[in-house]
Nucleic acid binder design. Sequence first.
DNA 1: CAAGATTGAGTAGTCAATCTTC
DNA 2: GAAGATTGACTACTCAATCTTG
Lengths: 163, 163
Amino acid sequence: MTEPRWLDDEEQRAWRGFLRCYAEVRANLQRQLQRDTDLSHADYEVLVALSEAEEGRMRAFQLSDAIQWEKSRLSHQIDRMAKRGLVARQQCPTDARGAFIVITDEGRRAIEAAAPLHVEEVRRVFFDHLDRRQVAALADACHTVLDGIAALEGSPGRTGESG
Amino acid sequence: MTEPRWLDDEEQRAWRGFLRCYAEVRANLQRQLQRDTDLSHADYEVLVALSEAEEGRMRAFQLSDAIQWEKSRLSHQIDRMAKRGLVARQQCPTDARGAFIVITDEGRRAIEAAAPLHVEEVRRVFFDHLDRRQVAALADACHTVLDGIAALEGSPGRTGESG
DNA sequence: CAAGATTGAGTAGTCAATCTTC
DNA sequence: GAAGATTGACTACTCAATCTTG
């Protein structure tokens, strides 16, 4: 590599917009959750994934894969949520190493109470500003990036790998 | 509010794609910085803002506004960065309450060394997967949301405000 | 008393080490 | 020894309290 390929104006605009947009949206969602519920965004993510899973439970590794968290982060988070009665740990019958994380009744109540308010806020800060065309374009761009990253990781062709 | 207005399929796709895309991109950038430099993403953000500022310095409140951080977060971060010699605090001559944060020579060297590698990674995980049309559409959507949020905050018309 | 900024305590996240089972 | 998961120490962030000057 010689000259770095700096971002041009349009790319800067896209890049900074993307980062800032995420930050703004997330800050608003966090405030809403804090104001209206007892859940953090982390709690919310975990409970959504579990509530959508069959029997309200997943293996820890599946859950950490679904929400893309490190194992240790998830484990700490589950500790805290278990203390608050939102989830529980179960032994896995077929693999003694394995742990199921299961949503409790209280966890269900919490997510069912929170979800309508949360989705309203998602609309207020995000979708209410976008028309269908923009939504489609955004989904397209994001999923294109995700697919691209997945492909990179499939064949990690970083320059100078075996050096 | 009666029935919550749940997200439809296309909205779900956009929303989850957006969150996941950000998470993936950020994870990759973090790994790159950790591998190739001694800077965290937080360090990087601070140094970019300062390096672009006149005389390489900003008032603390300007900086926290520019990168959208809480004051206390910034203050802690500046503590750590100052210990490492990347930035320094200066007294403000015109307002004795005020603090300037200034990038040091070492900070400049660090950001100038890191930036080319970082921008390469931004291309690798993000722009290399998108064509110009997608980049423009993404920039458009993100800035539309940002403008929308700014307008909300100008006139916080949340439903049921005075109730 | 509001604005600018810092501090400290508590919470959350990361990394490496560990433990158990496959 | 690798996979699934937990733990502990360290680092980072948040919130409320504080300090100082306007």
